[in-house]
């Protein structure tokens, strides 16, 4: 599974992209976030407040209950500020 981080989340995690192999019982975004938080203090800090984090699976916006599978591209980023 490929996990991407953008903007200040990338700075806190320390990388913009990583390949991870979560335990098999990690089946949705909420469980993935919980597991990613355990990887490092930077991950924990970046994902501490999900009110300021948006999630995309395979480049579509999703909620915390969305399923995640091996091979998915999961991205975490702040609310967008383009235009």
């Amino acid at each position: 599974m490929k996990v991407l981080y953008f903007a200040w989340l990338r700075a806190k995690v320390g990388t913009g992209e990583e390949t991870v192999v979560p335990p098999e019982d990690v089946a949705d975004v909420a469980a993935l976030v919980e597991w990613l938080r355990s990887l490092s203090p930077g991950h924990a800090e970046a994902l501490a407040d999900l009110a300021v984090v948006r999630v995309a699976v395979n480049q579509d916006y999703v909620g915390l209950d969305a399923p995640v599978r091996p091979g998915d591209e999961v991205a975490f980023f702040p609310p967008v500020t383009g235009g």
Binding site: F6, A7, W8, A56, Y61, A75, F77, P78, P79, V80, T81, G82, G83
Partner: peptide, 23 residues
């Protein structure tokens, strides 16, 4: 819609440093 859905993020560069623009 672009401003709230397209995944862009701005950092402003000022004399006082760099700041991520908040939505």
């Amino acid at each position: 819609w672009l401003k709230t859905k397209a995944p862009f993020w701005k950092v402003e560069h000022t004399a006082h440093g760099d700041t991520w623009v908040e939505a």
